[in-house]
Design a protein around this nucleic acid. Structure first.
Ligand code: SF4
Ligand code: SF4
Lengths: 137, 137
DNA sequence: TTTAATAAGACTTATTTAGTCCTATATCAA
DNA sequence: TTGATATAGGACTAAATAAGTCTTATTAAA
């Protein structure tokens, strides 16, 4: 159905919040959650995923929080999506080492390679969009 | 998660089958289903949806079946997807007349317009890919 | 040592997708 | 005219995924 998950949207919103409040140093998950009305627990997971991909810095402890790790013009929509969506591809069979478990048609499929090309185009598109462009259009 | 549904894949496979067997006149859902191992009932629905969008011709009755209504180079991936996926867009809020029921953030959202632009790029991409290119790469 | 933050896994619920079943209708041919 | 076989389409069930919640552990400043 080609829909982005809420996690991607929350990630973008969180990045926006962090950039806006960069002056005040780090920003907590609670502040973002309350500022934009995002479920706290889910947002926390999103921030953790962004941390793993080094898109944000996290600081633990009572004065902890998050900061952006890159300038918005150096982070793309592709970075955000692939940090947050486990496998964001248009079919189930593009992963490294996909087998019949992923799709029963995998060994006889006549649309796989062509769709892989479409996937590459989509990747290219997402890599061409920076979050700078998205969040300050 | 950005995945195409099985219905889209089945639609593409069905189109391929029809083109391949065009010489024999119309082709039945059963033949496609058995030829490519696609669940019959689901495939039938897909074919009905393609019929509604005039992408295929359907013939009822005992000698009935389906034929392609256009040359493969004149049908795009966009046509197939939008025939078969109810609303294939990357967010819930791009429909005509979307309200708070679709997304609670709709009136305060800072990422909606930018994502709409991304959607347009995706549309453009899908419209640029013909099923000729996909099925006979 | 208390407090407030992140980290992370387990769990539950809601939504969507995939698949099935059943009945109606159309058409051909014996 | 009737039986066989095709599409049409609605209702339903099951499976998979996404979204949200709960709980416990860890971290670090005051
Ligand atoms: S049907 Fe083909 S393209 Fe789709 S998931 Fe299976 S192998 Fe991949
Ligand atoms: S968060 Fe914004 S972009 Fe996403 S569905 Fe809601 S209104 Fe649309």
């Amino acid at each position: 159905m080609l829909k982005l998950s809420k996690k991607t949207e929350y990630a973008l919103m969180a990045v926006k919040f962090m950039a806006r409040n960069a002056a005040d140093g780090s920003v907590t998950a609670k502040e973002i959650s309350e500022g934009y009305n995002i479920p706290y627990d889910l947002l926390s997971k999103v921030l953790q995923q962004l941390t793993h991909k080094k898109l944000v810095n996290s600081f633990q402890g009572i004065k902890g929080g998050y900061t952006l790790n890159h300038d918005p013009e150096n982070v793309t929509l592709f970075d955000i999506i692939s940090a947050v969506e486990p496998n964001y591809q248009i079919t189930d069979c593009f992963q490294e080492g996909s087998t019949e478990k992923d799709c029963t048609y995998i060994n006889c499929c006549m649309i796989r390679d062509p769709l892989a090309k479409v996937q590459k185009e989509i990747d290219k598109l997402f890599k061409a969009v920076t979050i700078q462009q998205i969040l300050w259009p």
